[in-house]
Design a protein around this nucleic acid. Structure first.
Length: 476
RNA sequence: GGCGGCAUAGCCAAGUGGUAAGGCACGGGUCUGCAAAACCCUUAUCCCCCGGUUCGAAUCCGGGUGCCGCCUCCA
């Protein structure tokens, strides 16, 4: 059977065969964070989900151009600036750095281009100007608004009619819109606020326009994939479509991908509830590999619940894969009983079958949950091989390569460095000596002692093996 | 009110017409000086409820219940 990538397109609400504009190339844009604070795991989910999309596309051989923005000027930044007495630029700079660190810890690759709103100002102003010229936007009291009713496709992404949307729309005080659904393209600066010169006076861009301008600037009028959190579909993405398609008379993006929400202990994560989990803090408590594994154990479009209990479960679960991987490595390092044979047909088929299944699952709208289950099946096979007295070095190596290859697509690592200090090495040696003397009481007490230090010893026919305990057990 | 999502074993989670993946936890066995790891076996006659379509439905249709999201620049 042929293998075809299918993606769920929010625009059509269907899984569609993925066909890029240009053979072998993919242009994708992912809405990035407003950099006024540390990111929370709700920000981390799209970063991870679409990083995996990118990794998988690259795995399939596509040349991916990945653009993700930083909103470095908006109301929240201005408010933060007032509260902290720091400039908008300083705050943005600091949290862009923090974002890169946090997301980097989660093994999210940097975008090819990370444009900032403040560095795209010329293009933004130009974009608005053209919309005004075309009659899709109007200046009013120093602000510029998009004339929603002039774009006939308005509502096509969120599948709402203009009439329905109007019910919830309202005009804020001070705004002079022709229609409640019109949205801001340019906002006049209040005294003391950060501002740029424009044909409509000093001000700053509205939120939605930066993405339209950046997509146009870096990727073109039509791109392959536009992605972001589910909540962005309305109004943000809807407005982006309105802006870009009004100006270009071309489809903005062929595929719209939206990830599901994150919940904390089954509640919405929000500041008012006070349950916002910052990535910054979380990566101190859990191995980022585990966090990434956990997030991808659920399909990206489904909601995912976060709790300590669930994270610890994921840790436990992840440990099975990691143990297998490290046991493979251990066996290769210490064993003298390995055969230098070629791979049997049976195992060649087994390995390629695992890989094929992984690809099929990923082809089905990036079904990482199922892809991970293939990893567990691979672990089972590898464990059986490990149990054999005489295994092939080549086979073990192939299993390691398989794990590296597939976990590389999902963006986590199974390899675990266990650095032993002198004291621990001595204890291990002492225990080995005790075992030789058949002084099991002493040997066991040393083993217990090491366990308290987080080192678990395992005696195997090929010699002693050790690993770090899952943090789970002892932590109070 | 409009639009949408979810409900599968103790827990997590796939599966969207062909007779319930995978993981954690639990129990039994093998291995081990004892463990650990691993392997083998066992664990949902059933997928929120009620009807319907079908040779056949967790999967499609209708109705109901519960939880949740968007429609308020929040990923």
């Amino acid at each position: 059977m042929s293998i075809v990538l299918k993606v769920y397109n929010s625009l059509t609400r269907k899984k569609e065969v993925f066909k890029p504009l240009e053979d072998g190339k993919v242009k994708m844009y992912v809405c990035g964070p407003t950099v006024y604070n540390y990111i929370h795991i709700g920000n981390a989910r799209p970063a991870i989900a679409f990083d995996t999309v990118r990794r998988y596309l690259e795995y399939l051989g596509y040349d991916v151009l990945y653009v993700s923005n930083f909103t470095d000027v908006d109301d929240r930044l201005i408010n933060a600036s007032k509260e902290r007495g720091e400039s908008v630029i300083e705050i943005a700079e600091r949290f862009i750095r923090a974002y890169k660190e946090d997301v980097g810890a989660l093994n999210v690759q940097a975008a090819d281009i990370h444009p900032r709103a403040t560095e795209t100002m010329d293009e933004i102003i130009d974009f608005i100007k053209k919309l005004v010229d075309k009659g899709f936007a109007y200046e009013s009291g120093g602000d510029v608004y998009f004339r929603t009713k002039h774009f006939k496709g308005y509502g096509k992404l969120s599948h709402q009619s203009i009439d329905e949307l109007k019910v919830g729309a309202r005009i804020d005080v001070g705004e002079q819109k022709e229609d409640p659904l019109d949205f801001t393209l340019w906002k006049q600066a209040k005294p003391g606020e950060i501002k740029w010169e424009s044909p409509w006076g000093e001000g700053r861009p509205g939120w939605h326009i930066e993405c339209s301008a950046m997509v146009e600037k870096y990727l073109g009028n039509t791109i392959d994939i536009h992605a972001g959190g589910q909540d962005l579909s309305f109004p943000h993405h809807e407005n982006e479509i309105a802006q870009s398609e009004s100006l270009h008379d071309e489809t903005m993006a062929n595929y719209w991908l939206h990830n599901g929400y994150i919940r904390i202990n089954n509640e919405k994560m929000s500041k008012s509830i006070g349950n916002v989990v910052l990535v910054h803090d979380l990566i101190k408590q859990y191995d980022p590999n585990v966090i990434r594994f956990f997030i991808q154990s659920v399909h990206y479009r489904h909601p995912i619940n976060f709790s300590d209990e669930l994270l610890k479960g994921a840790e436990q679960s992840f440990d099975r894969l990691r143990t297998t991987y490290n046991n493979l490595q251990h066996r290769l390092e210490v064993s003298a009983d390995l055969l230098e044979e070629t791979l049997t047909t049976q195992y060649q088929e087994k390995l390629s079958e695992l890989k094929t299944r992984f690809v099929q699952e990923m082809d089905d709208d990036f079904n990482t949950a199922n892809a991970i289950s293939v990893l567990f099946d691979a672990a089972k096979e590898a464990n059986k091989v490990l149990q054999a007295e005489n295994s092939s070095r080549l086979l073990l190596t192939h299993f390691i390569e398989l794990f590296d290859e597939l976990t590389g697509v999902l963006g986590f690592e199974l390899k675990q460095e266990v650095l032993l200090d002198k004291e621990i090495e001595d204890l291990i040696a002492k225990r080995e000596e005790a075992r030789k003397q058949r002084d099991f009481a002493l040997a066991d007490s040393i083993r217990d002692e090491l366990k308290l230090k987080g080192i678990i010893l395992e005696d195997t026919p090929q010699g002693i093996r050790w690993k770090r305990a899952v943090s789970n057990d002892e932590n109070e």
